[in-house]
Design a protein around this nucleic acid. Structure first.
Lengths: 204, 204, 204, 204
DNA sequence: AATGAATGAGCCTTCATTCAT
DNA sequence: GATGAATGAAGGCTCATTCAT
């Protein structure tokens, strides 16, 4: 499962969702190529060979389409991190899970990751801002919730909780952004281990 | 120099630039409040009590206004980092300079920093994309250029050059983004030292 | 029979017409609340918990729904006036019948009356304009047809026939419009006698 | 001054208002021909040989255009009635003034009168409903305010104030509506005196 | 009879930009 | 240099209507 098509097929299965899948897939491409505001419903409709009415029937409006894309993507990313976290037993293992979960998600679904970066602001300013805030908070708690009280105390001894997340995810996110923007060529996947190690060292 | 008004006064001095300053200041606020595309020339004109013609006279078009704001801001940020770098003599000192230069810039000019994050994509897709690429590259080289050949070899021994920048700036950038978005309350300035230390540890 | 529900039950009796009645009732409310053009088939469908297809099955199209509502309402109003006219024997009695028939209809079915005022234009511009013209003419003749030749001559001595109807129905209609629009509070029913008397005086 | 063109010229004088006048004139015609909702901004623009932007520049939006047309028309009508009222000295004279002021307005500006009938509902449901309510109240008070206390007492002896207005204006309004809709042929102007007399008789 | 997904023409409105004054 | 009326392409969205199931 490493491309977007199979991603949508597994999240919106069945023949009845065929149009929904195609619209999401097309919108994703156009949003990334041209930007969200620069992409028109008409362009999407033309590429999908459907009608504007059908798009509005399924997603309400453009904002709803953006939100649907954003949340399905964010949820899947969260899911991957949780899977990794469950397999880890030590503190280092859990931090590595978060870092590598992030990297693996981005490299497996670069289109979705690219979209998330640009869509966050839109969603935050839309009617779905509450849902966004709730999910963001949940994501931030995932790591801390997976730790035992003892582990948590140990980790928070040096750095305040607010900072922890930036120390852990910051380097990976920075490199992933650069890669998605084409500013660096080597895939973040090549640096999975290096990044996890560096983060671990920074926290000792 | 801790607010935006004095910033514009020092970068566009004189009575003749008064309107230019006011337009930039107003545009900055509106862009941050509503987003760049959502802000209209008419709104800017109304808040400045000037005319659309005057704005076009000074900035050519909307894209030009965004670019002016973006580059003056990015140049000043680069300048601050260079000042810090000049004062540093050791490798650790230089890395600290980059991290703290970044943090200090953001906390001194949060409005400009916020704008830079959202404007980058716009500028990259505009006619000024070359200027953007050139300046980004320059910024990336500033640190490496300040090192002696020996220091450089030492630093690049473990981590490839592509990764270095993300390891250095990633944590600070991540925290600053969270702060500018209101997701964390404590100013990055409180963590100047902690962040620089963490980065240094991660590179050893 | 003083509310709209029983009105529809008596005009569309039986279990098979249940949906038809509910659609008419709902459409009537929405048309009055929002206006005819502002009301969508979808809104009606949602309130009735039925499907757009069912509405089209029963009424053909939106225009047909408006016309059905208009004509059933207009026919009932005409019927009431005719009943009153049959009971009257003198000229004054017949004029009183027309005035009070009108007032009683409006106060018994304010929703239907309100709808008639706004729908007349729509129906006139629709494919049902012929039916509208025919029924309007019939209504206008009802009074004159009920008079004996001698009575007719007497009534038309002073005022030309074109004017008669406006003199008779004008005051009541004016007050009823004001009441239906909420511009006056007292029900037209309070002024049944006063209005009939005033009209009679004006014709002497 | 008996056609619409000179009406607009006197209410929006000068070369700078030429476009405004033409838009109002054109909108009036189209609204009456096709109805307000059925008329599009594009149709108006095409007939005026102007641009949609210009229309929005002058009137804000379609609702604003309807309101402008409605209020300028209603104000002028009110003005005519006030002129007539000032010249009258007896109660009968004042009532005649109201009746004939109404009739003269309608026959001098049938297009505007026709428009007022259909636009009232729109304006009432628009953002200008307050202005409408205020002006309607003012119109209703014009007659009563022009009476001396003694005259007022005399007039209100038999009929309550709410009813008075309907008795006075009802017959004329009813006939004018019929004339504007083409249901009767003879101009209301032919019945100026008859209508005023009939109303006076009804009030004795 | 009932359903509701799909259609697509058409509407209102916005807004960057120009240019005559 | 300044002004703001005018332009008009383009966009998001609505909604009556159809039709396969």
């Amino acid at each position: 499962m490493s491309d977007t098509q199979t991603f949508f097929e597994s999240h919106f299965p069945g023949r009845r969702s065929a149009l929904k899948r195609e619209v999401l897939q097309t919108a994703l491409s156009l949003f990334n190529e041209q930007g969200i505001e620069a992409t028109t419903i008409d362009q999407i409709k033309t590429r999908c060979e459907t009608s504007v009415g059908a798009i509005y029937h399924h997603f309400g409006n453009k904002e709803g389409l953006v939100a649907a894309l954003f949340f399905v993507s964010q949820d899947a990313m969260m899911q991957l991190t949780l899977t990794y976290l469950e397999k880890a037993s030590t503190v280092q293992g859990k931090i590595t899970a978060v870092v590598q979960g992030y990297i693996d998600w981005v490299t497996e679904h670069p289109e979705l990751a690219r979209f998330q970066f640009q869509a966050r602001t839109n969603v935050a300013k839309s009617g779905h801002s509450d849902a966004l805030a709730a999910k963001s908070k949940a994501r931030n708690r995932a790591l801390l919730d997976s730790l035992t009280p003892a582990e948590r105390n140990e980790l928070l001894k040096i750095y305040p909780p607010d900072l922890i997340l930036s120390l852990i995810i910051g380097p990976a996110e920075s490199y992933c952004r650069a890669w998605l923007a084409g500013r660096v060529k080597k895939s973040p996947a090549h640096y999975r281990e290096l990044l996890a190690q560096a983060v671990w060292k920074s926290l000792s």
